[in-house]
Amino acid sequence: MSEVQRRKYSQEEKNTIFDGEFMPHIDSMYNFAYRLTFDEDDAKDLVQDTYLKAYRFINSFEQGTNAKAWLFRILKNSFINEYRKKSKQPAKVDYQEVETYYNSDDVDYQSTTDLRAESVKGMLGDEISNALNSLAVDFRTVIILCDLEGFTYEEMAKILDIPIGTVRSRLHRARNLLKDKLRGYAHHMGYDTDEEEEI
């Protein structure tokens, strides 16, 4: 995804690319934007800005390649450069939570012993959404890209400008944090947990 302008599309070609390859992703783009900003107007602005940028830089997009990843990368960069600062609900990064969590060797083991697949299957969409939304933005982002949008690690590496190894480890951390939140819900809702059955 180099920024070098390698082509010169005609007006007609531009329209074809924009309508045929860019616009079909508007739903995914809006959902991503909303999960980053938690605000309808900010999400709309972010998507709109992304499409305007995409049009302005359309000559650096190679027709027929991965338009969705290309657009997501622009959106994510716009969010970092412009919206993160003025966002009405600034991304809450709980560093202490993250640090203490990873200083424990047992963390992976604990994850499985007291949260059951069955409990998760019984949860409502809102509970899942809330758990996801409560994660710090970097962790939230990798889960959205991977699980909601189905990007590969390689695509995510390009969208986020980080090495694949970092994608993998960040996802792993994100999933542990998400399980923590889900475990909280499970206990709160009185869903089955393993503890009682181990006797």
Binding site: D27, V120, M123, I128, L132, D147, L148, R175, K179
Partner: peptide, 19 residues
């Protein structure tokens, strides 16, 4: 567990209606 979480994320995570 991971499989279940992916399933619910994919199928049950509330989607925002696009204006």
């Amino acid at each position: 567990l991971e499989q279940a979480i992916r399933d619910v994320l994919k199928t049950r995570c509330t989607k925002q209606e696009v204006p």
